[in-house]
C-alpha cells in the first residue's frame, strides 16, 4: 500500500437481513483527491459512507485509513481516528440544544477542553470562512435557513483542520444558487486545507464542480470509476443514463404504469 492512498476499501460487504446492500466494494481515494460517489437512492451510498466513518459495522472486508485497518480498532483508537475526519451531514445534524458557535467548536470544547472564549473566537473565525457573520454565532440552529445550516455544518466539519472530509449529499434541499455557493465553499475549503474529500451525491451539478474523480455505485457495486472529465463520455450505459438524467436506459425505475 502506497502512502498516497488516504482511504482504501477492499471487498466490503454489508447486508441488512436478506438485503445485500454492499456487494464487495473495492475503492481507493488518493491523498488530496476529491472523489465523488454517484448513485441513485437505495444504491448503498450512505451505507458505504457510514461504514467508512465507523457508524455501521460491515459484515466483511477491510477499510484502511492512511494504511491502518479501521475495522480492527478499539473504540478509543477509533475516537482518536475521528480527529482526522470532518463530516458534513445531509441535514446538517446540528445540535439543537447548543448555539451555533458551540456546534462549530464542539470537538474543541468537549474533547480538547479548550477555554470557552478561545473556542468561541475559533468558531467565529471559521464561520467567517464559510461566509457567515459573527452575529450568527449566538443564534440557535433552528433560527437559521437551510443554506445557513449547511454552512454551519461545513464550518463544524473544517474547524479542526481534518485531513479527510466527508460530504453526504451536500446540496440536497438547497436552491440552485445556494447549492452552487456550498459547492464553491466545499471546493475552497478542501483545497485550503489540502484535505482528501469523499462525497456522495446524486446532484450532477455538484459532482461536476467538486470532484477530481468520480465513482458510480449501482446495486451495491462500483460499476465505473474515472476522472470527472471522462464522466460525460464514460462509455458505460449506466453512467451515461445517470449523468444525463434519462428515464430510458439500463437503470430501471420501479414505477407502476397504469
Amino acid at each position: 500500500m502506497t502512502s498516497s492512498v488516504a482511504i482504501s476499501i477492499r471487498n466490503l460487504h454489508k447486508s441488512f437481513g436478506p438485503k445485500h446492500v454492499l456487494k464487495g466494494i473495492n475503492l481507493d481515494v488518493a491523498t488530496n483527491e476529491s472523489l465523488v460517489i454517484l448513485g441513485g437512492s437505495g444504491s448503498g451510498k450512505s451505507v458505504l459512507l457510514k461504514s467508512i466513518l465507523g457508524l455501521i459495522e460491515p459484515d466483511e472486508g477491510e477499510i484502511l485509513i492512511d494504511g491502518q485497518n479501521s475495522l480492527n480498532m478499539s473504540r478509543s483508537d477509533r475516537e482518536d481516528l475521528m480527529a482526522k475526519f470532518g463530516m458534513l451531514f445531509q441535514g446538517g445534524a446540528l445540535f439543537d440544544s447548543l448555539p451555533v458557535w458551540e456546534n462549530v467548536s464542539f470537538r474543541h470544547l468537549i474533547v480538547d477542553s479548550m477555554a470557552r472564549g478561545e473556542a468561541k473566537q475559533l468558531a467565529i473565525q471559521t464561520l467567517a470562512k464559510v461566509g457567515l457573520s459573527d452575529d450568527v454565532a449566538d443564534l440557535s440552529p433552528s433560527e437559521l435557513s437551510g443554506g445557513m445550516q449547511k454552512r454551519v455544518g461545513l464550518a463544524r466539519a473544517i474547524v479542526s483542520k481534518p485531513s479527510i472530509i466527508f460530504f453526504d449529499e451536500p446540496t440536497t434541499g438547497l436552491d440552485p444558487i445556494m447549492a452552487d455557493v456550498i459547492n464553491d465553499l466545499i471546493r475552497g475549503s478542501v483545497s485550503d486545507l489540502g484535505a482528501t474529500a469523499l462525497s456522495i451525491t446524486h446532484d450532477m451539478a455538484s459532482a461536476r464542480k467538486i470532484s477530481d474523480r468520480v465513482a458510480m455505485l449501482y446495486h451495491g457495486e462500483i460499476i465505473w470509476q474515472g476522472p470527472s472529465s471522462q464522466m460525460e463520455n464514460s462509455g458505460n450505459a449506466y453512467v451515461d443514463q445517470f449523468v444525463h438524467g434519462r428515464a430510458e436506459g439500463p437503470i430501471a425505475m420501479p414505477v407502476l404504469k397504469g
Binding site: K50, L53, G54, L55, E79, D80, M82, A83, F85, M87, F89, Q90, G91, A93, L94, F95, D96, F106, R107, I110, V111, R156
Partner: peptide, 12 residues
C-alpha cells in the same frame, strides 16, 4: 436527525 452519528464523528 443524525445528531447521534454527528456526536460519534466528533470523537464523542
Amino acid at each position: 436527525t443524525e445528531q447521534l452519528d454527528a456526536l460519534k464523528t466528533l470523537s464523542t
